[in-house]
Amino acid sequence: MTTTGRNSKQAQRKAAMAVLAHSGAAEIAGHLADIAVPAHENLREPENGLVMLRGRIGGDGAPFNLGEATVSRAAVRLATGEVGFGYTLGRDAQKARMIALCDAMVQSTDFSSEVEAKVIAPLRAAMLAERNRKAEETAATRVDFYTMVRGEG
């Protein structure tokens, strides 16, 4: 595989993981039910843990430990050999497993287009629609402030 092909595959995988991480477990499960899930095994059973969140004052200051967040993670291997990893904020082990399964399927030449069309694309559309709805709702409450100059003086 060429470097360009590898980079585009990584970009596709990164975009898919962003959509899956921001989607609900029920929505992912609903879309996964529409496709024939290939044979797979759990490399790492879903588990919960903590990660340290780092922050910076003003975005460019010295980094500091902000606090901890709960995460769930899982790893899955398809029968064809592709390995997928799933991480999500919170204590949702099944969501982490479904993300790992989708990650492995995105890497597979046999399942990539199907998981993109039937799982990732509908979730992306729903996510963008929700984002636009919230932006319109926020814009409706926006107040423009201006300063009037008095004519005295």
Rank of each mutant, 00 (worst) to 15 (best):
A29W: 09
T88Q: 02
S112W: 11
V76R: 01
A129R: 13
R13F: 06
M98W: 08
V76N: 04
G5P: 10
L32Q: 04
H31F: 04
M17W: 09
G49R: 14
E27N: 07
T3K: 08
A29M: 11
Y146N: 04
L43F: 08
G67H: 07
I99K: 14
G61Q: 08
R73E: 09
E116P: 15
C102V: 13
R97N: 11
D103Q: 01
A26E: 15
G151Q: 05
A33Y: 10
M1G: 14
I120L: 00
D144Y: 09
A100D: 03
A96D: 03
L89G: 11
V19P: 10
A135E: 13
G67T: 06
L50I: 04
G5E: 04
R77N: 08
Q12C: 02
T88P: 03
I28W: 03
E130I: 11
D144E: 11
D144G: 06
M148V: 15
G58D: 08
A121L: 05
I28A: 04
L123K: 00
Q12E: 14
T109G: 08
A25S: 05
A25H: 06
A79D: 08
D60T: 12
F111W: 15
A39G: 11
M148I: 06
R97F: 01
R150N: 15
Q10W: 00
R124D: 14
Y87V: 09
T109F: 13
R73H: 05
E47A: 14
Q107W: 03
N65G: 06
G30E: 15
A39I: 02
E82P: 15
E68S: 13
H40D: 02
A16C: 05
M1C: 09
T4Q: 04
D34M: 05
N42W: 07
Q12M: 05
A36Q: 12
T141L: 10
Q12K: 06
A21Q: 13
A139T: 07
E45G: 08
T2L: 10
V37R: 14
R91N: 09
K118V: 00
A117L: 15
R91F: 10
G49D: 14
R6H: 03
M105G: 02
D110P: 01
E47Y: 03
R6L: 01
V76Y: 07
R77H: 12
A121N: 08
T70Q: 02
V37L: 03
H40S: 03
G30L: 06
H40K: 06
K134T: 11
V106S: 01
L101R: 02
N132M: 13
R131F: 02
E136V: 09
E68H: 10
